[in-house]
Design a protein around this nucleic acid. Structure first.
Lengths: 161, 161
DNA sequence: CCATTGCGTTAGCCCAACTAACGATAGGCG
DNA sequence: CGCCTATCGTTAGTTGGGCTAACGCAATGG
């Protein structure tokens, strides 16, 4: 009986979302993430890439060749999904997949010259996309935001390294 | 040729994620959101509820009865999915679904006494869950975090009200 | 030598976000 | 009035991400 009901369906002149809903961090997170994900995948699609591609290429570049399993751990892409991602990357000749002579179960994945080039492109694209994503924040706030995210994520990742 | 490769697959003593990947806001967002979503849905499941239930009940309580379509707009739950959510809520007698005498296309959805009770429960549960979600932040930082999220989301929602 | 563990791979599940289409009604306009 | 378009509730289906289950095979080690 707040008075809002008294208006008996004003079609909702205010189709507003209640604050207790609108301001829940969980909801803000998932809504923003939905937008962010779309922004990123659309952006990367224009370079014939997906975010997984970037993750794998960056990990190869920064920490060297690796087996699929360890790439999985580095990127937190499920090993089931890694198969497809590596297929896509190999199709595009961005990585080499070779059997490990020392352990016949393993494939050793190596980034190719072309892969390094693509990685540079993707890095530039992602810089731009993040500029768009974080547009309303000044540099200090962007840092702050990232730091807050890191602290939260670390906290909730404590048990699952 | 950074030297990392020289170790020739040390199985990765450091199965570390490269910073350029780890610190991308988009990635932090989606990882954190994954955890957050799981936290919230698990928590709500213990009250036989889903986050959509909360959204609908809160909207009904705060802005009064509405048609399914306008609930859709208030909560940004797709109208296709709203059907199912309202079925669940009606099953539990948390809302009433009645045809609108003034417009035969519409159903008017009203929150029930029981629905109001449930909403109070869910609000308490969500408070606790958010306490867990934001645990590493002090009150000022939580505010800051929420404000940053709001600003970002508002910016990316500008075109799509 | 056998049991356990790790690897790559395939298949499939669940959920959320979203699109397409449809029958029915409302409302505006000529 | 009659037509046109928009809106409403609903069903069905798509896509994509995260995840589980199970497999055959190789490595490891008690």
């Amino acid at each position: 009986m707040t008075g809002a009901e008294a208006a008996a369906l004003p079609d909702d002149g205010a189709s507003r979302t209640p604050d207790r809903l609108r301001l829940r961090a969980s909801r803000l997170l998932s809504q923003l993430t939905t937008r962010s994900d779309r922004l990123i995948s659309d952006g990367l699609a224009q370079a014939d890439a997906r975010k997984w591609h970037y993750a794998v290429l960056a990990s190869l570049q920064d920490h060297g060749p690796a087996s699929q399993a360890s790439l999985s751990r580095r990127t937190s892409i499920y090993r089931s999904d890694m198969v497809g991602v590596l297929n896509e990357l190999a199709e595009r000749h961005l990585v080499e997949r070779a059997p490990d002579p020392a352990d016949q179960r393993r494939n050793i994945i190596t980034i190719s010259a072309r892969g390094r080039g693509q990685l540079r492109r993707l890095d530039r694209i992602l810089d731009d996309l993040h500029d768009e994503l974080l547009a309303p924040l000044d540099p200090a706030e962007r840092d702050q935001f990232v730091q807050l995210l890191v602290r939260l994520l670390d906290h909730h990742t404590a048990g699952t390294p």
